[in-house]
Design a protein around this nucleic acid. Structure first.
Length: 740
RNA sequence: GGACACGUAGCUCAGUGGUAGAGCGCUGCAUUCACAUUGCAGAUGUCGGGGGUUCGAACCCCUCCGUGUCCACCA
C-alpha cells in the first residue's frame, strides 16, 4: 500500500464499478421512502465551470447520504438547450466563416445548431462523472428530446385552453444584434454615462437623452401641479423640429418630476416604457404611437433624411443639426443613468413594440404563495425566501416568445390565405438569397410552399389586432381550410426548464412520476431564483397541483480566494477539471462545500483544494495505520483499552451530529464537522492513544469503518478505495448502510 | 428610492444563548516509529462601534458606521 493516495490511479475504475453495478438507480424496496433531486440542467453545449462542480457536489452528498440511509434515491440528470446562449455561440462560429443566420432558412439553421450541439454533447456528462456524480444516467433528459418537447407543448396548450395565454402587442426589450426580445428577468442593467440634451420644443425646453426618438413623439407631458406650465395643459402647441413644424398635445401626468431637467417630457410611447404607460393612461388624448426605430436598430422612414441610420450615428448628427437650426437651448450636460443591456452580447436593448405570446402570471401566483405559507416548500438561502415572495407579489406577465430558431417552436399557426397583406416574411429565394417584405409581395412569384419551406421569420402582426390573420394553437398543421404557416418564434428556454421536474419525471414513465413527485430538494444558485425556481413553482403547481419540491437549497457563487468574482479577463478562473486532475475529485468536492452556507458566496483557491488533498491523504494513511496494525498485531491478543468506552461514546455522538446536520441540509457544517473530528480527534488523539494501547484495535477499526461511512458522501473515491481494499464486507461502500 | 445579506485570527470563512473555531499563511521545535501531502507547541481576536434584554450575548432586540448584491428608477 502506497504511502500516498493517488486519486488519478483509481477514480475512473471506482466510478465504473459504481456505474456498472447499477448503484445509481433508486432501489425498489417498497418500504423505502423516496428521495429525489432533479439536477439543474447545465447548458448542453458548455464545459463545466466551478459553479457546476459546486452544485454537483452538494447534490451528490445529499444523494449518497440518502442512498446509504436506504431511501429510494433518484438523482435525475439532464442538459438544457439554452436557446439564446447556444445560438449566440453558434452565430459567432458562423461569423468566423463570414456567414450569418440570415444565410439560412430556419430549418437548416436549426439542424446546423443541432449537429453542433451533438458534437459537444457528452462533454458535460463526462465531466460530471469525473466529479463523482452518482446520478441515474438512465433517466437522463435533454430539453429538446421529443418526449420532453411534446409535454412542453401540451402545457402551452393547456394554458391556452385555460385562457392563460394571450397574444398581444407590448413594449419589449429587444436586442437588435441577437435579434430577439426578452422578458424583463433577462435584462441586465448597467450604468451608462451619456449626454442630456436641452432642446427647444415649441414654448418649452425639454431635457432628453434620446433626441433621435423625437420623430416619434406624440405628446408633451408636464406635472399637473407645475405652475410654470399650467396654462398649457390640454392645449396643442406648435413645435418646430428638424423636419418642420408639427403640433403636439400637452398632457398632465404625475409621472413627470418637476424637479428634473425642465419639468417637461416628450412622450414617445413606442420607445420608452414610462411613455408607453403614459400613453395607456391617456389613450384618448394621445394619437396612435409612431415607430422610429426598427428591429435592426435603424431609424425608420418617419425620420426623413435620417432614415436608415444607426441609433448612435443618428444621435450625433441630429445633435449637430439641432445646433445648426438653433434648436438647442443650452449645451448638453453629462448624465449618468441605468440602461438595459442584453445579458448575452451586452449591447443596449431597445424597447420596441412587438406582438408576442404572454402567460398571465397573476392567476398562477396564488398557489406558489400558498406553498410558501404552508411550508409545502421552504427556501434555504440567507433571506432568499423573502426575495422569492417579493418576486411573486410583483410579477409581470411573462413574455415567452423568442425570435430565435434554437428552441421549441411555438405551436401556433397563422392562416395566410386572404391575409397576405397582414403578414411579413423573410425567406430564401431559389438562389438562397434573403427576401423580405409583405407576403402579398412575394407569394405570386414564389408560392406559399416555397416560402413556408424556406422561411426564416414570419410576423403576422401587421396592421391592427382586429384584422390580423386568424391563428390556431395546434401541435400539427391544422387541417382546416386555409394556408397555414407556423409561427417561427420559439419558447423562452425557461418555459421548458420551468417545467423540468414535471416533464423529466413524466417522460420517464408514470410510475416514476407518481413515486418521485414532488421532489425532495431543488438545489441551485440564488442567482436564478426568479427566472427559474419561481417559474418551476408556478408551472409545476399549475400542471400537477403540487409544488415541485419540498426544499429549495440555494447555494452561493464560487469566488476566488480573495473573494473576487471569477472571470476570464481577471485570469482568476479555476477550472474544476484541472483541479480534479491535480488533486483528485474528493479534494475538489470538499473544498467547495466545507464551511459553506446556503445563499452565501464561497471563496475557493487552489491552496484550499491542496489542503483538502492533504485531507484525503490523511484518511488514506489513517486507514493504512489501522490495517498495518491489524496485519502486524496478534488480533487474538487484542484486549479492551481504558479509552474504549470514551471513544465509542464520542464516535456515536459524532455520527449523530453529522446525521442530524445532513438531515437538516446543513451540508457545509456537516463537512466541516466530519473533517475536524476525523483529523483532530480520530487521527490526532485516538490513533495516538492506540499507540499507547489505550484503545483496542477492534474499537479503532470500528471507528474507521464508521468514519469511512460518514466521509463517503463528501469524499466518495478515497473512502470507497479504502473500503474495497480492506473491508471484509462484499458490499461496496456506496450502498453500505449509513450507521449501524 | 426599496429590499436582502454581510462585517469573527494576517487572508478566506464556519459557528447563532453557556470558557472563541477551521482552512490557507506565520514562528519555534520534532521526525527511521500511518502520513513532511506529518506531528507538537505558539502568536495575532475588546467576534464593526454604542446601547438594551439575560445569571450569562459573537449569537436575541434597538441604533449608528462600513461593505456587497438584487430590484426600481427622473426624460
Amino acid at each position: 500500500m502506497d504511502k500516498n493516495f493517488d486519486p488519478k490511479a483509481v477514480e475512473e475504475a471506482i466510478y465504473q464499478m459504481w456505474e456498472s453495478g447499477g448503484f445509481f438507480a433508486p432501489n425498489n424496496n417498497p418500504s423505502s421512502k423516496p428521495f429525489t433531486i432533479i439536477m439543474p440542467p447545465p447548458n448542453a453545449n458548455d464545459p463545466l465551470h466551478i459553479g457546476h462542480a459546486l452544485f454537483i457536489t452538494i447534490e451528490d452528498i445529499l444523494i449518497r447520504y440518502h442512498r446509504m440511509k436506504g431511501d429510494s434515491t433518484l438523482w435525475l440528470p439532464g442538459t438544457d438547450h439554452a436557446g439564446i446562449e447556444t445560438q449566440f455561440v453558434f452565430e459567432k462560429k458562423l461569423a468566423k466563416q463570414d456567414k450569418s443566420r440570415f444565410n439560412f432558412d430556419r430549418e437548416t439553421l436549426y439542424k446546423m445548431i443541432w449537429d453542433y450541439v451533438q458534437e459537444n454533447s457528452g462533454v458535460a456528462v463526462n465531466q460530471m462523472k469525473k466529479l463523482g456524480a452518482s446520478a441515474d444516467w438512465n433517466t437522463f433528459k435533454f430539453t429538446l428530446d421529443p418526449d420532453i418537447v411534446i409535454r412542453v407543448l401540451e402545457t402551452f396548450i393547456k394554458l391556452y385552453h385555460d385562457n392563460l395565454i394571450y397574444r398581444g402587442q407590448k413594449l419589449i426589450n429587444y436586442c437588435t444584434k441577437c435579434g430577439t426580445g426578452y422578458s424583463e428577468l433577462e435584462v441586465e442593467h448597467v450604468e451608462e454615462t451619456t449626454k442630456l440634451y436641452f432642446i427647444k420644443y415649441g414654448p418649452f425646453v425639454l431635457a432628453t437623452t434620446r433626441p433621435e426618438t423625437k420623430f416619434a413623439d406624440t405628446a408633451v407631458a408636464v406635472h399637473p401641479k407645475d405652475k410654470r406650465y399650467k396654462n398649457y395643459i390640454g392645449q396643442e402647441v406648435a413645435v418646430e423640429g428638424l423636419l418642420g413644424t408639427f403640433k403636439l398635445k400637452v398632457i398632465a401626468d404625475d409621472y413627470v418630476d418637476p424637479e428634473f431637467g425642465t419639468g417637461v417630457v416628450k412622450i414617445t410611447p413606442y420607445h420608452d416604457f414610462n411613455d408607453f404607460d403614459v400613453w395607456q393612461r391617456h389613450i384618448h388624448e394621445i394619437p396612435a404611437p409612431l415607430q422610429v426605430i426598427d428591429k435592426q436598430g435603424r431609424l425608420t422612414a418617419i425620420a426623413g433624411p435620417y432614415a436608415g441610420m444607426k441609433i448612435k450615428a443618428a444621435r450625433d448628427i441630429i445633435e449637430k443639426d439641432l445646433d445648426k437650426k438653433g434648436l438647442l437651448a443650452k449645451p448638453s450636460e453629462t448624465y449618468t443613468h441605468n440602461v438595459g443591456v442584453c445579458y448575452r452580447c451586452k449591447i443596449v436593448l431597445e424597447p420596441l413594440p412587438l406582438t408576442q405570446f404572454f402567460i398571465k402570471t397573476k392567476p398562477l401566483v396564488e398557489g406558489a404563495l400558498r406553498a410558501l405559507d404552508t411550508n409545502e416548500t421552504t427556501v434555504m438561502g440567507a433571506g432568499q425566501d423573502k426575495i422569492l415572495r417579493h418576486w411573486l407579489t410583483n410579477i409581470r406577465d411573462w413574455n415567452i416568445s423568442r425570435q430565435i430558431v434554437w428552441g421549441i417552436r411555438i405551436p401556433v399557426w397563422y392562416n395566410a390565405k386572404g391575409h397576405e397583406h397582414q403578414i411579413t416574411v423573410s425567406f430564401l429565394d431559389h438562389e438562397k438569397k434573403q427576401r423580405q417584405g409583405l407576403l402579398s409581395q412575394w407569394v405570386g412569384e414564389f408560392g406559399y410552399e416555397h416560402i413556408a419551406k424556406n422561411l426564416q421569420h414570419i410576423d403576422a402582426s401587421v396592421g391592427s389586432d382586429t384584422d390580423s390573420p386568424p391563428w390556431v394553437v395546434s401541435i400539427d398543421k391544422p387541417t382546416m381550410d386555409g394556408v397555414w404557416i407556423q409561427e417561427t418564434d420559439t419558447f423562452d428556454t425557461w418555459f421548458s426548464s420551468g417545467q423540468w421536474p414535471v416533464v423529466t419525471l413524466e417522460a420517464n414513465g408514470d410510475a416514476l412520476f407518481k413515486k418521485f413527485y414532488p421532489t425532495s430538494v431543488m438545489e441551485t444558485g440564488y442567482d436564478i431564483l426568479p427566472i427559474w425556481v419561481m417559474r418551476m413553482m408556478l408551472l409545476g403547481i399549475y400542471v400537477t397541483g403540487k409544488s415541485p419540491f419540498k426544499t429549495v437549497y440555494l447555494h452561493g457563487l464560487v469566488r476566488d480566494e480573495k473573494g473576487q468574482k471569477m472571470s476570464k479577463s481577471k485570469g482568476n478562473v479555476i477550472n474544476p477539471l484541472d483541479m480534479v486532475e491535480k488533486y483528485g475529485a474528493d479534494a475538489m468536492r470538499i473544498a467547495l462545500v466545507m464551511s459553506s452556507t446556503p445563499g452565501q458566496d464561497k471563496a475557493v483557491g487552489e491552496s484550499t483544494i491542496r489542503g483538502m488533498r492533504n485531507f484525503s491523504n490523511k484518511i488514506w494513511n489513517a486507514a493504512r495505520f489501522v490495517y498495518m496494525e491489524k496485519q502486524n498485531a496478534d488480533t487474538t491478543k487484542d484486549v479492551p483499552g481504558i479509552e474504549d468506552e470514551n471513544f465509542q461514546k464520542k464516535l456515536r455522538e459524532t455520527a449523530l451530529t453529522i446525521t442530524q446536520l445532513l438531515d437538516s441540509l446543513r451540508v457545509g457544517l456537516a463537512a466541516e464537522t466530519v473533517h475536524n473530528e476525523f483529523w483532530h480527534w480520530y487521527c490526532d488523539i485516538a490513533i495516538e492513544q492506540r499507540k499507547r494501547k489505550e484503545i483496542s484495535l477492534q474499537t479503532l477499526e470500528d471507528g474507521l469503518t464508521t468514519f469511512l461511512t460518514l466521509l463517503h458522501p463528501f469524499m466518495p473515491f478515497v473512502t470507497e478505495e479504502i473500503w474495497r481494499k480492506f473491508s471484509t464486507n462484499n458490499t461496496p461502500l456506496i450502498t453500505s448502510p449509513w450507521i449501524k
